[in-house]
Amino acid sequence: MVIERSVVDHVARLARLDLSEEERARMGAELSQILAHADRIQALDLDGVEPTSHAVPVVNALRQDEVKPSLEQEESLAGAPAVEAERFRVPRIIEEP
């Protein structure tokens, strides 16, 4: 499956990524390869195979309950498209019926 340029543009917009022309071309090719790989896996007969959630044989990766420094408020809001009253301002969540 080949990813069209319009799909790359759309996904980049959804992910709020500002990609250059060159990056868009490369992403199109890479995403196509990934989907092709997924298609090969889809085609396998996996009846009776237990679902695998993780590929590494590791369990219980836990951390101690210790406080680490957070970002300064200014830093945490720096990437927000809009700020009001020290909060992230977001568009209306639910449209009127």
């Binding site: 309950d65 210790e66 406080v67 680490k68 957070s70 408020q73 945490s76 009253a85 909060r87 992230f88």
Partner: peptide, 23 residues
């Protein structure tokens, strides 16, 4: 707990908005 579920930000009630957040 002292810290959040998946990061080291402090858990507390109220306080300055967006001051206990991290990447």
């Amino acid at each position: 707990t002292r810290s959040k579920m998946f990061c080291g930000c402090r858990v507390a009630f109220a306080g300055a908005p967006n001051s206990r957040v991290c990447p």
